[in-house]
Amino acid sequence: MTIQHRTVDIEAASKLWKDDLSASQIAKRFGVSRNVIVGIAFRNRAFFPEKQRSKSTRPHKAAPAPRKVETRKPYTPHEREPVPVNDYDVRRLPYAKRLEDLLPGECKWPLNSGGPYLFCAAKAAGKYCEHHQSRALASQRITKRGQA
């Protein structure tokens, strides 16, 4: 058979096929692509008996070991302990506001841990007033030291 300006002898190819050579190896001998040999084998099934398919050569992927329930920590949305209340927070409580009542430039530091949540509402340059800004930075430093 003439394909791609080359001649592939079907009988010779079928003998190589029966000798258990792969389509790629047969293609190299005839100077054609693997797909040409596969196509010829498909069209001339009488000459090319079906080969036993071998199992995958990929290594078997082992199933991961089941996780032990005892070793898992239960999920808690707030893993860090809340910052403890101090005297400043207690003095700010009468002036505290709910979140929806806060205006721009007021401190957004929560003063209590139950509903309705109340926030500091002191004058602030950013999110927090000077006092709460320093406490936030101090708690970050403590957290970073604990991780190291």
Rank of each mutant, 00 (worst) to 15 (best):
C107W: 09
P64M: 03
L111M: 07
A12P: 04
K51Q: 10
N35P: 00
N35L: 00
N112H: 08
A122C: 10
F119D: 15
Y117N: 14
A122T: 08
C129L: 03
V32N: 03
A27M: 11
V85R: 00
R29N: 15
K127D: 13
E50S: 13
K68P: 07
P84Y: 08
G31I: 06
R98W: 06
Q4V: 08
P104N: 06
N44T: 07
F47I: 01
R72T: 04
I142N: 11
R92E: 08
T76I: 14
A121C: 11
R43Y: 08
A136Y: 15
R58E: 12
Q25S: 03
C120P: 08
A63P: 08
Q52L: 13
R91S: 00
T57W: 06
G115D: 15
S54I: 09
N112F: 08
T143G: 09
W109S: 02
L137W: 09
K55C: 11
S56G: 00
R145D: 05
S33N: 10
L118V: 01
A124F: 04
D87N: 05
A138F: 06
Q147G: 03
G31T: 06
E11R: 07
Y117F: 15
G31F: 12
A125G: 06
P110M: 15
L118S: 01
I40P: 05
S14T: 06
V85L: 00
N112I: 15
R29Y: 10
V32K: 02
R141K: 14
V38F: 15
K144S: 05
W109F: 06
K144F: 03
V8S: 03
K15I: 10
D87T: 01
E79Q: 13
S22E: 02
A41E: 03
R72F: 05
V90G: 01
Y88E: 12
G115L: 13
P82F: 04
Y75N: 05
F119N: 13
P74W: 05
I26P: 08
Y117L: 15
T71M: 00
R145K: 12
Q4N: 15
A23F: 06
S24C: 04
F47R: 05
A148K: 08
C129F: 02
A138R: 09
R58K: 07
N112E: 14
K123V: 14
K108Q: 14
V36D: 09
C129P: 02
N35A: 03
D101L: 14
R141Q: 15
I10Y: 09
A27N: 12
K144P: 02
H5E: 11
